[in-house]
Amino acid sequence: MHIYKAMKDCERKVQKSLESPTVKLLREHMEKAGCPVKDTFFKVIYCRNKYGGSYAPGGGGISVCGNFRQRQDSVTRNCAHHACSEIRANRLSGDCHFKRELLRGILKIRGHEPECIKKRVLKSLSSNPFCAASTTSKDSMEAVWNICYNDTAPFDKAP
């Protein structure tokens, strides 16, 4: 894909993600908490190294590498942050809920949700070249499991 086209495509994907109801809700709650996140916080940039993007504290914002973006949801992150993001995403999406698992033919009554989430987190971490080693993946997930699994903000409880 031509670099200009790839960068424009990435900009469209960033804008599309900002329209997501989940992202809108999170931004709304961050603003109420005194931490507004403006659209300009997200920048599409050209990267020399093959990364998905980065975060620069102190107002630097989130940079997304437009020349390496191919899927709407692909991101390269620190292993513990990556694990936490996956734990929260899988917990809050409800995709590992008992009813959905039942429809997939998983008949386990107790402990199905954490097992489902752990399986998905490890699968995601294994696709990240920085976290791919099985011990790195598992250690990263276990290090953040309790705090990230129990963090349902901005919701009162997992939906």
Rank of each mutant, 00 (worst) to 15 (best):
K38M: 12
G61N: 04
N150I: 12
E101M: 14
K108N: 03
K5P: 01
V14L: 08
G53K: 07
K8D: 09
I147Q: 10
H112S: 14
K43Q: 12
H2V: 09
D39G: 13
H112A: 14
Y51D: 09
M141I: 08
L26W: 08
R77G: 06
K32R: 15
L25I: 00
G105D: 02
M1W: 11
G111F: 13
A6E: 10
A89C: 03
A143V: 04
T76V: 06
R100D: 00
V37D: 09
I106Q: 02
D139W: 11
A132L: 00
Q72L: 15
Y4C: 07
R91Q: 05
L26A: 10
I147H: 07
E115M: 08
M141C: 10
T136N: 11
P154R: 03
S124W: 06
E86S: 15
G61Y: 10
S126R: 07
F68D: 02
K123L: 13
S93G: 04
Y149L: 07
P129V: 10
H2P: 14
A33M: 06
V75D: 00
R48Q: 14
R27D: 01
R100N: 05
C79H: 12
A56M: 02
R12W: 05
S127D: 09
A158Y: 05
F68R: 09
D151I: 13
E86I: 13
I45P: 01
H112W: 07
T135Y: 12
H2I: 04
G53C: 13
T135K: 06
P21E: 00
K8M: 05
N67T: 08
R27V: 06
T22G: 00
Y51V: 15
V44Q: 01
K16H: 02
H97C: 04
C79A: 07
F42A: 06
H82V: 00
A56I: 06
S127C: 03
A89N: 01
M7A: 04
F98R: 04
S140D: 10
C10I: 03
E113D: 01
I45F: 11
D95H: 05
P159W: 08
V144D: 03
L18Q: 03
C35S: 12
Q70E: 15
K119S: 15
A132F: 03
C79V: 15
V44P: 05
Y149E: 13
M1N: 04
D73H: 11
F68C: 08
S127F: 10
M1D: 11
H29S: 00
V75H: 09
Y55L: 11
Y51N: 11
E28N: 14
Y51F: 13
R120F: 08
C10T: 14
E86Q: 14
K157R: 02
F42V: 09
S140K: 13
R69L: 14
C131Q: 03
K123D: 13
V64K: 05
S126I: 03
K5V: 09
G59E: 04
P154K: 03
R77Q: 13
S85I: 02
Y4P: 01
G105N: 06
G60V: 05
